[in-house]
Simulated scan of single mutants.
Amino acid sequence: MQELAEICGYSRVSVSAALNGKGGISENAREKILRIAKEHNYTPNKMAHALKGLPSYLIGMLIRDLSNPFYTQMIKIIDDHLHKKGYSLIVLNSMADLEREKKALQTLYSYNVDGLFIAPFAKDNAVDNITSIVGNHKKPVIMLDNLSRDIGSMSIGFNNRSGAFEATQYLIDCGHTEISYLAGPESSLSYRERSAGFMNCMQKNELTINSNSIFPCGSSAEDGYTAALSLLKTKNRPSALFCFNDYIAVGVYRAAQELKLNIPQDLSIIGFDNINLTKLLSPALSTVNIHIDNVARDAAKNMLKFLKDENYSPQTKNHIFEPELIKRDSVRNLKK
């Protein structure tokens, strides 16, 4: 920075203020410094800033599965908001592995990040695993899951149970009684909530629960494809499938095509998440909108508030977004 200050003809303090968007200098001076910095391809050493006790302008994000469009959609929005304020987002993938999650958290803190977003992996000791690491650092932490409300500065999530209940009820209202739920990975924090919502709705409507009512599945399109092939080849195959997420539903579409089952005439499908891809499927996928974009914006805005004011305290520590049923073309109404 000293070399840049000499080239610009300003003090290090003025150059630092210009580069970091601080006050105390005129707009003309700021524009000149930024122009010269760009001409000389100047890149500030964020790690050096952090070692001096200054902000690194790095934000960490730990997610479970980078291949899932749910997370890539969320990452894009959060990154856009942070970028406008001069922050860079570092994303690490736990691959739903407890030990990898622990190492990833330690790595992010070693980069001296100013804050963290965490979409946690769920195992018996996962919460303790995160708490033991996060608790040693005085940096804002936003948990991207409403089931982790006791960790970090705040949590932002969605009502999984309500969304699953509403999706199942919609299938029942359309005349479906043979319904199977492709339940996703048991390690997911959302698994038990959505499973509970599905079971509650089935029981409330006095529908029979059998061995195929909740069908084991992973969380990817490949998992959905494999599970659907197995389930739909059974003698008493269901007339409707409720999928743990939209990505699984993509795999179900492929399986139905291979088995020459028409959607929705032969098989009705409803997903969960409302990722951007759902509108591009044919027929368009009915799903549960958990407002990914709103969750991401809320997370980014609150993180920026924490970074701006260390005494910031949100009115509600746990933000829960209510789901919305999106009716498209993948569910057949058997009553018509």
Rank of each mutant, 00 (worst) to 15 (best):
Q73N: 13
M74S: 02
M74P: 03
M74H: 02
M74K: 06
I75L: 03
K76V: 01
K76W: 07
K76L: 07
K76T: 05
I77C: 02
I77L: 02
I78A: 00
I78C: 01
I78N: 00
I78R: 01
D79C: 01
D79E: 05
D79Y: 00
D79N: 03
D80P: 01
D80R: 06
D80I: 01
D80T: 04
H81P: 00
H81F: 03
H81M: 04
L82T: 07
L82W: 05
L82V: 03
H83Y: 08
H83C: 04
H83S: 08
K84E: 02
K85N: 04
K85G: 01
K85R: 09
Y87H: 04
Y87N: 01
Y87I: 02
S88F: 02
L89P: 00
L89I: 06
L89H: 01
I90G: 04
V91H: 04
L92Q: 11
L92P: 05
N93T: 04
N93K: 06
N93W: 03
M95T: 10
A96K: 09
A96V: 15
A96P: 10
D97R: 06
D97Q: 10
L98D: 13
E99W: 09
E99Y: 12
E99T: 06
R100I: 10
R100M: 12
R100E: 13
R100A: 10
R100G: 08
E101K: 08
E101V: 05
K102C: 12
K102M: 13
K102V: 09
K102N: 11
K103M: 09
A104K: 00
A104P: 04
L105K: 10
L105W: 10
Q106A: 08
Q106I: 12
T107D: 14
T107W: 10
T107N: 09
T107F: 09
Y111Q: 13
Y111M: 08
N112C: 11
N112V: 06
N112M: 11
V113S: 14
V113R: 11
D114I: 01
D114H: 10
L116A: 05
L116M: 11
F117D: 02
I118V: 07
I118L: 07
A119D: 13
F121Y: 13
A122W: 06
A122R: 05
A122P: 01
A122Y: 05
K123N: 14
D124H: 11
D124R: 12
N125F: 14
A126C: 14
A126P: 14
A126W: 15
V127D: 15
V127A: 15
D128I: 07
D128F: 10
N129C: 13
N129R: 15
I130H: 15
T131N: 08
T131S: 13
T131L: 11
S132W: 12
S132I: 15
I133A: 09
I133W: 09
V134R: 14
G135K: 12
G135F: 10
G135N: 08
N136V: 06
N136R: 10
N136A: 09
H137S: 04
K138V: 07
K138D: 14
K139N: 12
K139W: 11
P140L: 00
P140T: 07
P140W: 04
V141T: 05
L144I: 09
L144Y: 07
L144A: 00
D145V: 10
N146K: 08
N146C: 06
L147Y: 15
S148F: 14
R149A: 05
R149E: 10
G152K: 06
G152Q: 02
G152Y: 09
S153P: 02
M154L: 03
M154Q: 01
M154T: 04
M154K: 03
